[in-house]
Amino acid sequence: MHLPARVLDDAVSADATRPVLTFYDDTDEGRGERVEISRRVLRTWVAKAANALQEGLDVQPGSVVLVDLPSPHWRLAYWALAVWSVGATLTVDTHEGADVLVTTDPDGDLAEDCDEVVAVALPALSRQFGTELRSGVMDEAAELASYADDFTAWDEPAEDDVALVHGGERTTYAELLEGLEELPRGARTLVTTTDPGLFVRQVLQVLAAHGSAVLVRSDHPVAAGSDEVPDERLVSEGVTHRSPAVATD
């Protein structure tokens, strides 16, 4: 079994400086933001988030973390990998009970049912959440930098431990990379899915194939998954493969 943390480590060992995620936010909210991060930088984000979960919020194998972030988004990618690094269960089903909530809406209904809440500001240059947070809510933008750049899990998950809850289905750690469309090794892959459960598995698949991904978030998700993604962007980014925007059998 290839644990997600090892998949990421293997990719970094192969070429630490290669861009792994290039994110375009074409929504009105994002105002055309473009973010590019290397494999090494992604691992640093994952390590900091994993340390925050393990040391700051006592997350461990058996814990459930609800990550309520938009898809596709680079912040969803590193939080998913952080949850798996700790060996916990990631859920993207909002009705599923969770010990910790990672969200852009720390005052929403979801926060009422979680013991711990992490507030996430989406813009890359955020240094604080932007609004006053109630006591006990972690401000990711302000606090994550204080956690270490390296991470060591206190315990590792078993093959049959649940890694992902998505659409009512439970996927074990051994199954995370199973049942996905085959991805060419080293491919530069366009990812546009608004399905967060599919997205986090596609990111892991890209890492396992030692490739990289261009993530495009849009106010019009159907268009984003079609030929309406500008051809000049695909050419300039060197896209060689497109991952499906919806799950396939």
Rank of each mutant, 00 (worst) to 15 (best):
V35P: 15
S85C: 02
G32P: 08
L66D: 06
L69P: 00
D9I: 03
R6H: 11
D25F: 15
W74C: 15
L66Q: 06
V41P: 01
V102W: 09
P72Q: 13
L21F: 07
V83G: 01
S63W: 06
R31H: 14
L69W: 00
R75E: 06
P19N: 07
A5K: 05
L42T: 00
R75H: 10
A82T: 12
D58N: 10
G87D: 02
V64S: 02
R18D: 10
L69Q: 00
P19A: 05
L81D: 08
F23E: 10
D105A: 10
G32T: 05
L8E: 03
E33T: 07
L53Q: 11
R75N: 03
D9M: 05
D28N: 14
T94A: 14
V65G: 05
H73P: 00
G30P: 07
A88R: 09
A50R: 09
K48G: 02
V7D: 12
A88Q: 07
V102F: 15
D58S: 04
S13H: 13
T22A: 06
W84S: 01
V7H: 04
A5R: 11
P61G: 03
V100E: 03
L66T: 07
E29A: 06
D9F: 05
V86T: 11
L76Y: 01
F23M: 08
E96A: 12
A98W: 11
R34Q: 13
T44A: 10
V59L: 11
D99Y: 06
L76V: 00
D9V: 07
G30Y: 14
F23V: 12
R6L: 10
A49N: 03
D58P: 00
V46E: 09
A47I: 02
R18L: 15
W84Y: 08
G56H: 04
G56F: 03
T94F: 09
V35Q: 11
V35H: 15
A52S: 06
P61V: 01
R34Y: 14
L8F: 04
T103N: 09
R40F: 15
A11E: 02
T103P: 04
V59Y: 15
V35N: 14
K48E: 12
A14R: 04
R40S: 15
D10Q: 11
D68S: 12
D93V: 11
Y78R: 02
Q60Y: 13
A80Q: 04
A14F: 09
V83P: 02
A98Y: 15
A52G: 15
A88E: 08
A47P: 05
A77G: 13
E33C: 04
Y78C: 00
A80R: 00
Q54P: 14
S63F: 08
V102M: 12
E33R: 07
W74M: 06
G87F: 01
D10R: 09
D26Y: 15
L53I: 04
S71M: 03
L81R: 02
G62W: 02
E55A: 06
G87I: 01
W79Q: 11
L66E: 08
G32K: 05
D10K: 07
Y24K: 01
P19M: 02
A14N: 03
G32S: 01
T91A: 01
